[in-house]
Design a protein around this nucleic acid. Structure first.
Length: 507
RNA sequence: GGGCCGCUAGCUCAACAGGUAGAGCAGCUGACUCUUAAUCAGCAGGUUCAGGGUUCGAGUCCCUGGCGGCUCACCA
């Protein structure tokens, strides 16, 4: 018999023994009076306050994480959502028959226990068990108690095991929830309205990324998972909601890395009668607020660097930042060809399909981004890489756009939203043209079509143009990658450590 | 998609230079009335990711494939 089968058989034998004794191994409910942590606090309080009511019987419940049998007494550790507590079993208290039935419990089982609290000789607050109940039988052995679950693949595929056996995993996820809650509080306090817009979209615009396709049977129509929240939120601004935001998953059919998951959480907000300078101020305040709320301070450690999130953040134009780092002033190279030639002089071999906007983007990611450890706004982007952003009044080559970088990661992208429908239409056309050109030379890159001939990337959204034609107020818009913000505040170097179930190839 | 690295018992890890696959935890049997990585004695447990090849002999070397990690590309 294989060992795993042998182990399984032991569990099944126990299950049968339990049932034979008339015990339901999966009872319907159990009412605990305290969590493990509440019990510990209660006992400590009673010890220190002379007037406190003496400890009466209480009941706890949790998963058995360790058992130590010592003849006619035994100690178990159980863990619930609040933490760990020790249980003490004595055959003199329980009676020998009940005590013997402890043998049917395994590490991993969920149990309820009631009794009184006391301190052991070694000082640990412990429940002296007067009675216990099996609440759920486990039929699988848990990972090793000391090292926990190390195998990274298994940690992600069976996250519940990771959470059970690696205590240090849970806090980042708890913090994640607190971060999202704090973001909501911040925006709600400022009068933003949280809204929901379609995940299934006939076009999937608002960014330039390959999309996931699906099909609606009743409509007999292809639909796409959204790659951004932008275009629907702007429709709501047009409709008269002056401050809206949405927190939700977007889906991009691109590569997976330590900073990219195919589905990730985006916060987008739009504020009518604001521009990108207003948004910039809000981003500083918001990130600072969240840090104070969830970690209690604005200084955080990330990847061995000490980062201070307190405003004001450093502010530098994109043009200056690139010039400082590699000596190229993109303003001197208004043509794609000349910029590429200049980059090649520096030994860079840019992809031949890249247009000027993407070349500038390559300069950012190669020379600028890695150095942006302390919070920094890069301001004023070339208009060709910002098709949804308004041009600057005094420089039509640049758009009123900024990105915020912290810890070498882009965490926010914002602009004064383009609200001129005719201009927007032209920008879409230009983008479309650039895409088709790239597609003609290298179909496997972005711009390719799927097997049935549908474009993987689509940019022209006539329905959105129609909406703009009714008039959108001047608006400041913002996008924040929540996962990366969580990485920053939890000092995690991989996005998979802040997403419960990261995408993996099916086995 | 490219490069590099990894995959051995349920879990965590060994196995010199190609020579009988081992240990700890978990499990099982037994001892033990304050342990906490409990301790002690014993037992059981393996398709070494899969398939091919080289060799007298492969966990180890070679090839193909699978899955994962890092990284590059992609992700305006």
């Amino acid at each position: 018999m294989a060992r795993s089968d042998q182990i399984a058989q032991h569990y099944l034998d126990k299950l049968e023994r339990i049932r034979d004794r008339g015990i339901d191994p999966y009872p319907h409910s159990y009412h605990r009076t305290h969590t493990a942590q509440e019990a510990v606090s209660l006992f400590e309080h009673q010890e220190t306050s002379p007037h406190a009511v003496p400890s009466s019987e209480l009941s706890l419940a949790g998963r058995i994480t360790a058992s130590r049998f010592m003849g006619r007494i035994a100690f178990f550790d159980i863990r619930d959502g609040s933490g760990k507590i020790q249980l003490y079993f004595g055959s003199d208290i329980l009676g020998s028959e009940k005590y013997e039935s402890l043998a049917d419990l395994d590490i991993g089982d969920i149990v309820g226990a009631k009794g009184k609290l006391f301190r052991t000789k070694t000082g640990e607050i412990t429940l002296e068990v007067a009675d216990f109940t099996l609440l759920a039988k486990s039929l699988q052995p848990l990972p090793e108690k000391w090292h926990g679950l190390v195998d990274i693949e298994k940690r992600y595929r069976q996250r519940y095991l990771d959470l059970i056996s690696n205590e240090e995993v849970k806090p980042a996820f708890t913090l994640r929830s607190q971060i999202v809650a704090a973001l909501r509080r911040f925006l709600d306090q400022r009068g933003f309205l949280e809204v929901e817009t379609p995940v299934l979209q006939p076009l999937a615009g608002g960014a330039l990324a390959r999309r996931f396709k699906t099909h609606h049977q009743a409509l007999d129509q292809n639909l796409f998972l959204r790659i951004a929240l932008e275009l629907y939120l702007k429709r709501l601004i047009i409709g008269g909601f002056d401050k809206v935001y949405e927190i939700g998953h977007v889906f991009r059919n691109e590569g997976i890395s330590t900073t990219h998951n195919p589905e990730f959480t985006m916060l987008e907000s739009y504020q009518a009668y604001a521009d990108y300078t207003d948004v910039m101020k809000m981003v500083e305040d918001m990130v600072c607020y969240v840090a104070k709320e969830v970690v209690g301070r604005t200084e955080v450690e990330f990847g061995g660097e000490r980062i201070d999130l307190a405003p004001p953040w450093r502010h530098v134009t994109l043009r200056e930042a690139i010039k400082d780092r590699c000596g190229i002033d993109f303003k001197d190279y208004p043509e794609t060809a000349s910029l590429r030639a200049r980059m090649e002089q520096l030994g860079i071999q840019p992809d031949p399909n890249k247009d000027r906007g993407r070349l500038v983007d390559e300069l950012i990611s190669t020379f600028v981004e890695p150095s942006l450890i302390q919070p920094t706004f890069l301001v004023d982007y070339p208009v060709e890489m910002s098709p949804l952003a308004k041009r600057k009044e005094d420089d039509e080559q640049l758009a009123e756009r900024f990105e915020a970088f912290v810890g070498g990661m882009e965490i926010a992208n914002a602009f004064s939203e383009l609200n001129d429908p005719v201009e927007q239409s032209k920008r879409f056309e230009a983008q479309e043209q650039a895409l088709r050109q790239a597609q003609s030379t290298t179909p496997e890159l972005t711009g390719a079509t799927t097997q049935d001939g549908e474009p993987e990337v689509e940019v022209i959204d006539d329905d959105f143009i129609l909406a703009l034609e009714y008039g959108m107020p001047p608006t400041g818009g913002l996008g924040i990658g929540i996962d990366r913000l969580v990485m920053l505040l939890t000092d995690k170097q991989s996005i998979r450590e802040v997403i419960f179930f990261p995408q993996l190839r099916a086995k």
